[in-house]
């Protein structure tokens, strides 16, 4: 398989990248890790006229932990998984990231790329929702920050404007009484999520004082589960509470069906995996 021909640019700064985006408009696609874009191009599913390769922009790479956790959009899964500091303050990231693709995909694939691509079965969107991450983007008018919950708008669609570049993802480190987990039902061939659920729990003593859930793989886009979250609040996070609350998962969502999992089955699995993610998050929050 061979991609169609394209014009290639490799900017070395964010400003240069944004200028190129402005110049080429819809014709252009950003190339980061390339593990979604290049296969799509080889299969003829995408044929951008211009590729803007941002991998030479050093400032987009790396993890900074000072109060918040700031992860450059070009930071690879492998770099996230191996980052000592992240293992301490946000262990769920490593847990989730190590389930992505394979060793080679993790060496190339980037957090920012996955979020900007917004594949409905990608793992990272669920994490950003559950962890209430902020997504920093730069455009011709400067920079702005988008809450994860507002970022994913539809299948393969985000709140990014065509002339904007996703530059960083900001997480809040977890402290005592907080726990998060990611569990997924992997696609047997790609290990994308057929259903993936990220859960965050904060305990106030023995009671749940905050809960966020991000579900991926099930619908056109990753989504929070407000009903489940509400049901968890004030409860003790025990098995019965989890079982009851997770029954609300996926309700009201447009669930997808395909050859790997029908709509009915996915709907049921959203509940099961929500329960399992919550159970793990609660256990971690209890310490």
């Amino acid at each position: 398989m061979i991609p169609s021909a394209f014009e290639y640019h490799a900017p070395t700064s964010v400003a240069e990248a944004i200028s190129l985006l402005g110049q080429h408009g819809d014709e252009a696609k950003i190339l980061a890790g390339g593990h979604s874009l290049l296969p799509a191009m080889k299969l003829g599913l995408a044929a951008p006229g211009v590729l803007i390769d941002i991998t030479k922009i050093a400032e987009l790479r790396g993890v900074v932990i000072n109060g918040n956790v700031n992860i450059g959009s070009l930071t690879t899964w492998a770099a996230i998984a191996q980052h000592e500091g992240l293992r301490r303050v946000l262990p769920v990231l490593g847990e989730a990231v190590s389930q992505i693709g394979d060793l080679q995909v993790r060496n190339r694939g980037t957090l920012g790329g996955a979020l900007a691509h917004a594949d409905p079965a990608a793992d990272a969107p669920a994490l950003t929702l559950a962890l209430d991450a902020a997504i920093r983007v730069h455009g011709p008018k400067g920079e702005r920050t988008i809450a994860a919950v507002d970022f994913f708008t539809d299948m393969l669609s985000t709140a990014l404007e065509p002339d904007e570049l996703l530059t960083a993802i900001i997480f809040r480190p977890l402290g005592a009484g907080e726990g998060a987990a990611y569990v997924k039902f992997p696609h047997p061939a790609t290990r994308y999520a057929i259903v993936g659920v990220a859960a965050y729990i904060k305990l106030n003593g023995t009671h749940v004082s905050a809960c966020r859930i991000g579900v991926t793989g099930a619908g056109a886009k990753a989504e929070r589960q407000n009903d489940v979250e509400q049901a968890m609040l004030g409860g003790d996070g025990g098995d019965e509470a989890l079982a009851t609350a997770s029954l609300r998962a996926g309700e009201g969502m447009d669930i997808l069906g395909d050859i790997h999992a029908s709509e009915d089955y996915r709907r049921a699995m959203v509940k099961v995996y929500t329960k399992r993610a919550l159970a793990a998050a609660v256990a971690r929050a209890r310490g």
Partner: peptide
């Protein structure tokens, strides 16, 4: 030094 799938990488990169 890192393993990569060369069918999903551009030579120009």
């Amino acid at each position: 030094g890192e393993s990569v799938k060369s069918c999903t990488t551009l030579a120009i990169q």
